[in-house]
Amino acid sequence: MKIGELARQAGCSVETVRYYEREGLLQAALRDQSNNYRHYDNAHVDRLMFIRRCRALDMTHEEIRVLLQARSQPDANCGTVDALIDAHLHHVQARIRELSMLEKQLYDLQSHCHANRATRDCGILRELEQAEEGENSTLAISSSGHLAGSHAH
């Protein structure tokens, strides 16, 4: 099958397929000598679906590589897989705590809003300005940065 059909079967874009190939997560396809088109088989579909399920669980490429390696060794001990999921679960729990703190900060910030005022008198803007200046404020600036759905391990 061609790249477009693989992408359709996996529910992703052609660019996603190319990206996973560049990243080394998906094996490069054989190319037709006459037109240089990529040709994929069902093994590519299975692997791409596996990768997409892992990404849906917010796993990093490195975590996915470890799981793909384990998947390629069906008789090996699965302790590595269990340890990876355990570490990933701890990371997700930490993110949930951070997101809960972020939610509280946003509610606190929102409490400074008194509707129907000019922006020069806006309590939210004032709080954000104070946070920039390092004054006492309901906002704590985290050294971990804003969460964007990825992690560093």
Rank of each mutant, 00 (worst) to 15 (best):
L26C: 03
P74E: 06
V14R: 02
Q9L: 08
S13Q: 12
Q73A: 08
D41T: 04
A7Y: 09
D46L: 10
G11I: 03
S144N: 12
H90Y: 08
V92Q: 08
L128F: 14
Y19G: 09
I3W: 01
G123H: 00
L6K: 01
C113N: 02
Y20A: 00
Q33M: 07
S100L: 07
N36C: 14
Y19L: 13
M59T: 03
P74F: 01
A148K: 13
A83I: 11
H153C: 14
C54H: 02
L67I: 14
R53D: 04
L6C: 03
E103I: 01
A118W: 11
N36V: 14
I96N: 09
E15M: 02
L99A: 15
R47I: 10
Q69W: 14
G134C: 11
G11L: 05
H91V: 12
N35K: 03
Q130Y: 05
S111M: 03
A148G: 12
R120G: 13
G123W: 00
L128I: 15
L57N: 04
N77V: 02
L99R: 15
D41P: 00
T60Q: 08
S142M: 08
N36M: 14
R97H: 04
T138L: 08
V92L: 12
S144K: 13
S34K: 14
Y37L: 11
A56E: 15
E21Y: 02
D121R: 08
L57M: 08
E15T: 02
A29F: 07
H39Q: 10
Q27F: 04
L30E: 15
T60F: 01
L106M: 14
M1D: 08
L128V: 15
M49K: 10
L25A: 05
Y107I: 11
H153F: 15
L125C: 13
A56N: 15
I85Y: 06
E129M: 14
A94M: 11
T119F: 13
S111I: 01
R65M: 07
H153E: 14
D46C: 07
H88A: 05
A152W: 09
R8D: 14
L84F: 06
I85D: 01
R53G: 01
H88F: 06
C122L: 02
V17D: 00
